[in-house]
């Protein structure tokens, strides 16, 4: 098997194992209370971390570039209750514009 195929197959298996461990082993059963309270805050914690890193990280460096301007504009749009697609469009447009300027 070539290197590329090895990566494709092994990455696929590892990813599915990570995603499916919970659902396969505990599926349908309620989580113990402390775990449930932890899990209830996973969404805000992980999504905020994804926002922060996809906006401000470039590899292992922190950078403030055009993306930050676009995402700030999108955040304002979301706060003003704009639909998701509009917010994403604003982010892309403002970012592209900030790159030209």
């Amino acid at each position: 098997m070539s290197t590329a195929w090895t990566v494709v197959v092994v990455t696929g298996i590892v990813t599915l194992a990570l995603k499916a461990a919970g659902p396969v082993l505990l599926g349908g059963r309620p989580l113990p209370d402390p775990v449930a309270r932890f899990v209830a805050l996973l969404g805000p914690a992980l999504l905020a971390a994804l926002v922060a890193t996809t906006t401000l990280a470039s590899g292992t460096r922190l950078v403030l570039d055009a993306r930050a301007v676009g995402v700030a504009a999108a955040a304002l749009a979301v706060w003003r209750r704009a639909p998701v697609l509009l917010a994403v469009g604003i982010a892309a447009a403002v970012t592209a514009l900030a790159r030209v300027v």
Partner: peptide, 21 residues
């Protein structure tokens, strides 16, 4: 990135995060 599409994902995550706050 030329079209600012690299800002699409953070913007999506902002929109997905907002109702969870």
């Amino acid at each position: 990135t030329r079209f600012g599409l690299d800002a699409a994902f953070p913007a999506l995550f902002v929109a997905l995060l907002a109702p969870q706050l």
